[in-house]
Write a protein that binds this DNA or RNA. Structure first.
Lengths: 173, 173
DNA sequence: GTGATATGTTTACGGTGACAACATACGGTT
DNA sequence: AACCGTATGTTGTCACCGTAAACATATCAC
């Protein structure tokens, strides 16, 4: 798992080869099959580990910092983030991963509820915003604006801040 | 291109094999190399085609329907959408794809400007919202809420509608 | 007609996922 | 102490894949 995780974070999940991971771990090319049914199962395990990391990243933060934490996690573990949300794994084939992801969603929604975002649509919109922003920053879009702000993290903070104002306006209306 | 596109839309870009595409097109397994330097180049071409499709999907719509069009495109061509934004292609290695993507971003921002979203951060936030929503719906999250609304498209419409109100409130403030 | 260019084919090599058969080491039972 | 099931690792094998090189053919300008 450790060797495979490092390979994924370095070159992306598509480039992960069971054999290379096995070599990196110093075992034979077929040893991984004693622990994972196939390549996808190993990726699923790494994705689940990713949700643990995401939980961990969100844990220390106050509810209102969730968005920043989300984007920061994506920036800190880009390939892991893509593995978790990039659709490389079919959730139908990995029920354990599915339920782990759903748990993360529930935690997220609960965190948003603390922030006063209790309507289902608003929670969905908030999450979509966080998620899309993470993805966009990861892809390197808005590079110019990001430079002006002094880095992607600052950019994300400002974008999220702008919307926070909008939501406040909505609640007061 | 047609054969490869169908394979990608059916089983995802990771499962695309040059040899299988060549077989589907009825040519030898090495014929594609006369048209594409390598596998990634073919994927890049398919991604560029995807941006054409996205432009086309957004063209007929009024500016205020952009969000719906975006999500509808993702739902209509899930694997193509993932190929375009999933980070499978490194934009550094495919400058043509990079500029094509930037053109699409510019069109999108212009469309948003027509809608009154002219501040850079608001445009970024709007795009992030559309993008994240598309991704989330694609991943099958909020399945329960989606059913209640009568399908993912209706769900997306409602979420986007909720935020539209928020933005209006911000502008009036 | 001739030659250049575009396109397709054949053959070959190394890497990869996956399967099967075999080996080894460890913990509990008798 | 002898025994055995289980977990783990190894070797060998196969089909498939990306990619390269050498070779063949067709098309089109001159």
């Amino acid at each position: 798992m450790r060797a495979a995780g490092e390979l994924v974070e370095k070159r992306g999940s598509a480039a992960l080869s069971l054999r290379e991971a096995a070599r990196a771990a110093g075992v034979s090319h077929n040893a991984p099959y004693r622990h994972f049914a196939d390549r996808d199962s190993l990726l699923a395990a790494l994705a689940m580990e990713g949700f643990d990391l995401l939980d961990q990243a969100a844990a220390g933060r106050s509810a209102r910092e969730l968005g920043e934490a989300y984007v920061e996690f994506a920036l800190a573990h880009p390939q892991r983030f893509r593995l978790m949300f990039g659709g490389a794994l079919d959730l139908e084939d990995h029920p354990a991963l599915r339920s782990r992801a759903e748990l993360a969603h529930q935690k997220l929604e609960r965190g948003l509820a603390e922030f006063g975002v209790d309507a289902a649509f608003a929670a969905a919109a908030t999450w979509a915003l966080m998620h899309g922003l993470a993805q966009i920053v990861l892809d390197g879009h808005f590079a110019h604006a990001q430079e002006q702000c002094g880095g992607p993290a600052a950019f994300a903070r400002k974008v999220l801040g702008a919307v926070r104002l909008a939501r406040a306006a909505q609640r007061s209306a």
